[in-house]
């Protein structure tokens, strides 16, 4: 096994040019267990991208916030900018694994791992995050819901990496909800984020809900939010959620439990937001 730790994107691109099969390592909290579970995997070339400073940090401009791909979950949690503008993402960092893993796990790692239960994802979806990709063929920018295509699947090519995440600033409020089997170190049974604005007449000005662990990817509950938006009653329209989700049975919960619990909690929280 060869180990490389490029110090810039240029050095990384040279590695892409001279090697065919690079195994990219960021925080390693998902990748290392996967490698250890599959001893037969051939890992010829290991590339530790954590030594590339340009991929770390949070920058604020007038219109948006740019988060470097390798910014850790703990750094997101400590950031006043994230807490101020994106409550749902901040709340997700507080419920994310334990401190040890938060110090290693990166935002791009959570996105590229593409787990349906990834805790940072619902907040990124409802705040319309955009993924910045860089590779040998150039740069491209893709909305997060188009970037993740299935369980563990993204549109990332083998000669590309995620370099940053851009989230537009707005006056939208958001919150995150996670149901785990315990308070910390838990993989979500169900999670979701809600981003909303309510006008002075207590009507929805905007509303977006993204839910995790109820489909192969995080999904927007669009039919449900459209119904609410057009003035339908929560107690009735909540049933529409069943048409949008496709939960499965796994070691953490059954599909039918997931369906019941997401509807119950969503209904409760939506009513709470109305009252606020």
């Amino acid at each position: 096994m060869k180990y490389f730790a490029p110090k810039s994107l240029e050095e990384l691109k040279d590695l892409f040019l001279s090697n065919h099969d690079l195994n990219i390592l960021a925080g390693g909290t998902d990748v290392l267990p996967r490698w250890q579970d599959n001893p037969s995997l051939k890992l010829d070339v290991l590339v530790d991208i954590k030594k590339i400073p340009e991929l770390i940090g949070i920058k604020e401009s007038e219109t948006d916030i740019k988060i470097g791909a390798l910014t850790t979950v703990q750094d997101l949690k400590k950031s006043d900018i994230i807490k101020k503008h994106f409550s749902s993402i901040y709340e997700a960092t507080c419920q994310f694994a334990g401190v040890q893993i938060r110090h290693r796990a990166t935002i791009a790692g959570n996105i590229c791992n593409a787990s349906p239960a990834g805790d940072l994802l619902p907040g990124l979806y409802v705040h319309n995050a955009v993924i910045q990709i860089s590779g040998l063929k150039g740069e491209r920018v893709v909305p997060i819901h188009q970037f993740i295509t299935g369980v563990g699947k993204t549109i990332l090519e083998s000669d590309e990496i995620v370099v940053g995440i851009v989230i537009p600033k707005s006056s939208i409020k958001s919150l995150f909800y996670k149901l785990g089997l315990r308070q910390s170190m838990a993989i979500s049974v169900v999670n979701f984020a809600i981003a909303y604005e309510i006008d002075e007449n207590n009507n929805w000005k905007s509303l977006q809900i993204a839910a995790g662990s109820v489909a192969p990817t995080v999904i927007y509950l669009k039919t449900f939010t459209d119904a609410l938006f057009s003035g339908s009653d929560v107690d009735e329209s909540i049933q529409l959620v069943d048409d949008e989700i496709s939960p499965i049975d796994d070691i953490r919960a059954t599909a039918s439990y997931r369906s019941k619990v997401i509807k119950n909690v969503l209904m409760h929280i939506i009513k709470e937001i109305y009252v606020r």
Binding site: Y3, A5, L25, G28, T29, L32, P33, L46, D48, K50, Q74, G98, V99, Q100, I101, H103, R104
Partner: peptide
């Protein structure tokens, strides 16, 4: 488990989730 906790530059991390080269 966290039984593998160490401090790296003062920050808690899991030694089992880190490669020595990093």
């Amino acid at each position: 488990t966290g039984a593998d906790t160490i401090l790296v530059d003062g920050n808690m991390m899991n030694a089992s989730l880190m490669l020595i080269h990093t």
